[in-house]
Each structure stands twice: as structure tokens, then as C-alpha cells.
């Protein structure tokens, strides 16, 4: 277990960098994690992060990439519901990287 510093608070993360406690999340968490990855978060990133948080709130799991892709297509438009678009935003993998920024656990079945 390590920690990340967000607005002066030390938040616990697991060995892969996911927040240990989902309730520790605030938007600044995503900003700090993205900065460490050398990534600037845009509105398009936030659409996905917010989508993931809504999904988790409703179903209590992080969606598999396949489900995320389909659901994003349905909610945000077909042009965004494909892995090319999502990998463009999150090069380390939309499931893993975006879930980490969103403060969610690693998706079930994610490889």
C-alpha cells in the first residue's frame, strides 16, 4: 500500500495505484493521477470518468471494457462508443486507467 498526495491529504492506494477507499475520491484525485501519467484531462476525459462513477453508483462494480464501450456509445454517441476513441483518451486502457482516475476498483475480469 502506498499513498498519493491530493490537496495536502495522503490518500491510500493499492499496489497498482487504485484508491483503497472509494469515498476518498474527489475530482482532484483524477487530476493528480493524470499528471503523474503526463496526461492533461479534457472534457472528453471527464465524460468518461463521470460515466464510470455513475455506473458504479448504480451497479456497484466497474464495467468490463466491452460493456463500457457499448454503454458509452449509447450514452455519448456512436462516434465515442469504440475502443479507438477510448484508447485515444486513455492510452493505458480505458477500463484500467479511467477506472483508476474515477476512484473505482479495477474492473472485474479486466486483464
Amino acid at each position: 500500500m502506498g499513498t498519493i498526495n491530493v490537496n495536502g491529504k495522503e490518500l491510500e492506494v493499492d499496489e497498482e495505484g487504485y484508491l483503497a477507499n472509494i469515498n476518498d475520491w474527489e475530482p482532484a484525485v483524477a487530476e493528480v493521477m493524470a499528471k503523474e501519467d503526463g496526461l492533461e484531462l479534457t472534457d472528453e476525459h471527464w465524460d468518461i470518468i463521470n460515466f464510470l462513477r455513475d455506473y458504479y453508483e448504480e451497479y456497484q462494480i466497474a464495467p468490463a471494457v466491452r460493456v463500457l464501450t457499448k454503454a458509452v456509445g449509447k450514452k455519448l454517441g456512436k462516434d465515442k462508443g469504440n475502443s479507438k476513441y477510448l484508447y485515444g483518451l486513455f492510452p493505458y486502457g480505458p477500463g484500467k486507467q479511467a477506472c483508476r482516475y474515477a476512484g473505482l476498483p479495477k474492473p472485474t475480469g479486466c486483464v
Binding site: 462494480i61 464495467p63 457499448k70
Partner: peptide
């Protein structure tokens, strides 16, 4: 304990 009852509701998506 994790509340996984809501998770059944997404199984159609899976």
C-alpha cells in the same frame, strides 16, 4: 460487506 444486489441489474449489459 459489498452490496452486490444492484450488480444483478447490469447483467443484461453483460
Amino acid at each position: 460487506m459489498k452490496n452486490f444486489t444492484p450488480t444483478y441489474r447490469t447483467l443484461g449489459d453483460y
